[in-house]
Design a protein around this nucleic acid. Structure first.
Length: 840
RNA sequence: GCCCGGGUGGCGAAACUGGUAGACGCAGGGGACUUAAAAUCCCCAGCCGUAAGGCGUGCGGGUUCGAGUCCCGCCCCGGGCACCA
């Protein structure tokens, strides 16, 4: 049956296309075809009102999981909302394609990481398309594309020449059986994941980027980054860990008399210096190394420290162990002779790799002193005499007043800090210093599947960057994995490693380490603006699109990725490639997806497959439930029956539009001719628009948008008014709810919008305007409390003044039961909301 | 260990700036339609109580006319901690 009739806007429309039953698979295929055909999501570089919406690009693991569904739906909702609000939106997608899983898969499946990764990308791209994300695929790239990573190599050589790159020795997890470096996650209970061998700490020379040069700016900018959750800013502040302290130097005496080197320690508590009874070195400290050559027990202790993991959590909980050396440190203020120990809890990477030990006022030092019977001296007493301070039980670590500190007795923290620092400075044995917990970023990885580090080791010239003309240094992809070690380091690729020195022309060797994959993810957001440029890393389009207006991703990236990307943005800025200070204006970090109260994981056996869900319920229902189930930043509990509820809701909405269209054309709305029921629905419509706008734009709370649309739809369902005015009001209501829901369930709304008689596509429509007149109320419900307990709810005229409201409240029969015979002490009035009568 | 979150009905949650706790949905109960079932629609539903009312937002205190919301002290659960991304 084919029937044609005129719509509200006067066009002819084919009513038979509006089927009575909602068929998500067909609706979604039609909508996606329409978007594709119109190239609807190709971003316009020349637009003036730009909005850059970005979700953290995925690692192509081969299958989409529910975390991806949540992440990219949230990003898509933001992008589509901004478009409805009239912005020109860029929402790109690409692949964070380098990384360890590809190597593991290659080892297990006799596959190459390149082929495995490319196949995974194809699978995941198809899954993303099926979910209907409004992505500009014309800008897609993978970080393993040489056209992408060549610019990373280019930037690195520029930074090297600028002095922003250093070669430093750091500690890594070394598997002595597989002869390779392991990631922390590959170390289980101190043993290698494949070999089962005890893991050692081993020092390795690595390339590092001087992120510490930007530490202060990275910290300071956090103050003004209002678009970031406070929680994330706090985490980054702690990570950067700025502290003010003093470098203290000690003269040393060895077994053969005084040494000509001094030992430097860093402390934030110079006020406790008179309580220092010992100096402790990291196992990797040069003086510890030297002592080990003289003393077998020190050598043996350092050997034992090699079996400790590098993770901070392990450092904090392990037993404090140490060994005395034959060195003595001279306290620069008292001349006292202090023993020098090597201790496992001192980090070579922080400060100067040595600490002064004050057992009375530092808990680690206290535990250490207890274990080895070192003296514990109290030099700080609590300011508050009632506060307990029992050095038999634990260290007293609070700031306080100095005692047993000679000339410094009686001083409090700040005065003592100054006095001790000044005394040390005057003698030439100390210096005030700002220190950061943030360490320089070690970017070398002894792995295969990563971006080759564009450096050449020349026996004559030392490390030399690869010249621009020779970039990119392409990673060989046709490789065989023999065990765990990187193929780049095997004999098979000796030819790849051999090269000539760009400076002297002599025989040289190519660097065979690759970059940390955080390098690629630190600048991809800018490259999306100009992914097709093969002549430059970034161009004016990157300046125009960045910073990203809204960035969406996982909470697990709160520190590392987001700090490295902020650092890179400043490097790019200082190269003149972008002109903002920060890369991401607004940040949304989403919670996890759980099932049955636990994290979804293979081992828990509670994985839900997005493909199966989409096939069973449609992308819109999956997206709707995902948005509805919890606010974005909280953990969401997945529920299959919950998604069925979303299907029911979408079906109901579909039927409402179908019934409305079948009831005949709606005349244009005359707001002056409405009855009470019509005005009530209109008020609900405009209240919902207002709330949804706030929820989308300011609060970023999409669960309440969905519930608002459900409530409005329920209201429309109860509205059985087919008069011309009724049809007009319902048309307005449906026009509104379809647009409010469109960012979340774009396919069904696309089709409903056409069914409602609109000729333009919904993605080109505009957000509905709130009519302030529609919001006005004649009466409001006033809650009446007596002594804070609700005793009545009254429907009263809006805008009543205090006296009238209180009088109305007192007159209520039930209220009277509780006030009867008692004196009114006080009456609280919150206009149009509440009256609280306080009686005694 | 350190840092960061979270705790509200049987379940997911809502309550936005201190003002009606539990909107919306899931699961459940009852009813309509159906030969029956599914689907759909309508009604009920925090706990105790016939009711009036009382009690309820992890636990214990506090501020306030009024606290899920603010303050102090605890308990429990989850996440991050530099070579996983």
């Amino acid at each position: 049956m084919l029937s044609l009739r005129a719509s509200r806007t006067g066009q002819i429309r084919d009513v038979s296309r509006m089927q009575q039953h909602y068929d998500p698979q067909a609706v979604e295929a039609r909508a996606q075809a329409a978007w594709e055909q119109a190239e609807a999501f190709r971003a316009d570089d020349t637009a003036t009102e730009k909005f850059y919406a970005l979700s953290m690009f995925p690692y192509p693991s081969g299958r989409m999981h529910m975390g991806h569904v949540r992440n990219y739906t949230l990003g898509d909702v933001i992008a589509r909302y901004q478009r409805l609000k009239g912005m020109s939106v860029l929402q790109p997608m690409g692949w964070d394609a380098f990384g360890l899983p590809a190597e593991n898969a290659a080892i297990q499946n006799k596959e190459t990481p390149a082929r495995w990764t490319r196949a995974n990308i194809d699978t995941m791209r198809a899954q993303f398309k099926r979910l209907g994300f409004g992505l500009d695929w014309s800008r897609e790239f993978a970080t393993c594309d040489p056209e992408y990573y060549r610019w990373e190599q280019w930037l690195f050589t520029r930074l090297f020449r600028k002095g922003m790159v250093e070669r430093k020795t750091t500690v890594v997890n070394w598997d002595p059986v597989d002869q390779t470096v392991l990631a922390n996650e590959q170390v289980e209970d101190g043993r290698g994941w494949r070999s089962g061998a005890l893991i050692e700490r081993r020092e390795m020379p690595q390339w590092t980027l001087k992120i510490t040069a930007y530490a202060q700016e990275l910290l300071d900018n956090l103050e003004h980054m209002d678009g970031w959750p406070e929680q994330v800013r706090t985490m980054q502040r702690n990570w950067i860990g700025r502290s003010e302290g003093v470098d203290i130097e000690f003269d040393l005496r060895g077994p053969d008399g005084p040494l000509d080197t001094r030992l430097k320690v860093y402390t934030t508590r110079p006020d406790t210096f008179m309580g220092c009874t010992c100096v402790a070195l990291a196992a990797e400290h040069p003086l510890a190394k030297a002592a080990a050559e003289r003393l077998p027990e020190v050598a043996e202790f350092r050997e034992r420290c090699r079996n400790l993991r590098t993770a901070e959590a392990d450092m904090a909980t392990m037993e404090k162990l140490g060994i005395a050396t034959d060195l003595v440190a001279i306290h620069p203020l008292t001349g006292a002779e202090l023993p020098v120990w090597v201790a496992n809890f001192v980090l070579m990477e922080y400060g100067s790799g040595a600490v002064m030990s004050v057992p009375g006022h530092d808990q680690r030092d206290w535990e250490f002193a207890r274990k080895y019977d070192l003296p514990i001296v109290q030099v700080i007493e609590p300011l508050d005499p009632t506060m307990s301070c029992d050095l038999e039980q634990e260290a007293f670590v609070e700031r306080g007043r100095l005692v047993h500190s000679g000339a410094y007795d009686g001083l409090e923290f700040e005065a003592a800090f100054d006095a001790v620092a000044s005394a040390l400075e005057a003698k030439g044995y100390g210096e005030r210093r700002v220190n950061f917990r943030l360490r320089d970023w070690g970017v070398s990885r002894q792995r295969y599947w990563g971006c080759p580090i564009p450096m050449i080791h020349c026996p004559a010239c030392g490390p030399v960057p690869v010249p621009d003309a020779d970039l990119p240094v392409v990673l060989p992809t046709d490789v065989a994995f023999e065990g765990v070690a990187s193929p780049l380091k095997t004999d098979a690729l000796a030819e790849w490693r051999r090269c000539s020195c760009p400076e002297c022309g002599g025989e040289a060797e190519r660097e065979s380490d690759t970059f940390d994959t955080f390098m690629e993810s630190s600048w991809y957001y800018a490259r999306f603006a100009c992914a097709d440029n093969d002549a430059a890393m970034l161009d004016e389009r990157a300046r125009a699109w960045t910073p990203v207006d809204h960035y969406v991703g996982g909470i697990e990236h709160a520190v590392l990725h987001l700090l490295y990307a902020r650092f890179f943005h400043k490097l790019l800025r200082d190269e003149g490639l972008v002109d903002s200070d920060e890369p991401f204006t607004r940040l949304l970090l989403l919670g996890m997806v759980n099932k049955d109260g636990r994290k979804m994981s293979k081992s828990a056996g509670n994985i839900v497959s997005p493909d199966e869900l989409v096939a069973a319920y449609g992308a819109d229902a999956v997206r709707t439930f995902m948005m509805f189930a919890a606010p974005p930043d909280q953990t969401v509990e997945w529920s299959d029956s919950g998604v069925e509820g979303s299907v029911r809701f979408l079906k109901r909405l579909w039927k409402q539009v179908a019934d409305h269209v079948a009831a005949g054309p709606a005349p244009s709305l005359d707001t002056s001719a409405l009855d009470a029921g019509q005005r009530a629905l209109r008020r609900r419509v405009h209240e919902t628009i207002e709330r949804a706008d706030d929820d989308y734009g300011r609060r970023i709370n999409f669960n309440t948008v969905v519930s608002g649309c459900m409530e409005l739809s329920n209201e429309i369902g109860r509205f059985e008014d087919d008069t011309p005015e009724g049809l007009a009001v319902r048309q307005e209501a449906l026009d509104a709810v379809v647009r409010l829901l469109a960012p979340i369930a774009p396919h069904i709304c696309h089709e409903l919008w056409q069914a409602l008689g609109h000729s333009e596509m919904l993605i080109d429509a505009r957000w509905p305007e709130v009519d302030p007149d529609a919001l006005a109320r004649d009466t409001v419900q006033i809650v009446v409390q007596v002594n804070g307990k609700v005793r009545a709810r009254l429907e009263l005229a809006a805008g009543l003044d205090r006296d009238a409201a209180v009088a109305a409240a007192m007159a209520d029969a039930n209220v009277e039961r509780f006030t009867d015979g008692k004196a009114l002490r006080k009456a609280i009035h919150v206009p149009d909301k509440l009256v609280n009568l306080v009686v005694a």
